[in-house]
């Protein structure tokens, strides 16, 4: 079919690569969330402040976030090699890919968090203040629950972005489906494996997006 030869495909290798991709995705998504959520909250709270030093801190954090978001991921991986080595000890394979993935995706996710917190009705925040809520209570009991659909949509977008990032990391020996596609398709002209890898990634993105949309719908009350 279309000149593709499925008999020579090593399905075992594809299975391992799929698993690697899922591992990278899972681990980097968790750390991106853990890192990006607080940064997003800090960005949001600082952007509303009228205190001088808080506004200065906002400008600094915002600047760093923008830098990390504007550097192409492929360059970021290379630039972060010493950092990656310091954190996980290796710079290639599944483990070596996770730190650059997180460092690239966390600022992106933080911005999405900031944006969805901005969508929360100011009046509700004010009402909570009028009832004597502390800043921490406003964050945990008002902002996060009220922004939940937006946050879930942000997580979905981030994870889907991470799928394409894991593929890019294949260029520098990152492992996973992207690595497979590049090694076979690009270097060895074996398009069959490349096409299978790409199809697997398309299916993965579709499933993630569907799951995300479903969660968003489930938690939307408006």
């Amino acid at each position: 079919m279309w000149g593709l030869d499925f008999s020579s495909v090593d399905w075992n290798e594809i299975g391992v690569a799929t698993l690697d991709t899922l591992k990278m995705l899972g681990a980097s998504a968790v750390f991106t969330f853990i890192l990006g959520l607080p940064i997003g909250i800090v960005l949001f709270m600082a952007s509303r402040s009228t205190t001088g030093w808080v506004r200065a801190a906002y400008a600094v954090i915002s600047f760093i976030v923008n830098i990390l978001r504007s550097v192409p991921f492929i360059i970021l991986i290379v630039a972060l090699i010493p950092v990656t080595k310091a954190i996980v000890g290796v710079t290639f394979g599944v483990l070596g890919t996770i730190p650059p993935l997180v460092i690239a995706a966390a600022p992106f996710f933080a911005r999405l968090v900031e944006t969805s917190l901005r969508e929360v009705d100011r009046g509700v925040i004010e009402a909570a203040h009028s009832m004597g809520a502390s800043t921490w209570q406003v964050i945990t009991r008002v902002l996060l629950p009220e922004a939940r659909p937006g946050l879930l949509a942000g997580i979905t977008i981030t994870v889907v972005t991470l799928v394409s990032y894991t593929a890019m990391s294949g260029m520098v020996g990152g492992g996973g489906l992207g690595d497979l596609a590049i090694r076979y398709g690009y270097y060895r002209y074996e398009s069959t494996v490349m096409i299978i890898s790409v199809i697997f990634m398309i299916v993965l993105v579709q499933l993630l997006q569907m799951a995300g949309d479903r969660l968003v719908r489930h938690f939307t009350r408006k």
Binding site: G123, E126, A127, S130, M131, G132, P145, E146, R148, R221
Partner: peptide, 17 residues
């Protein structure tokens, strides 16, 4: 002290979630 002062609003300001 604010806990002893109730307040209601024109646009209600209820938690939609």
């Amino acid at each position: 002290e604010r806990r002893k002062i109730g307040m209601i609003f024109q646009h209600f300001n209820l938690l939609s979630s």
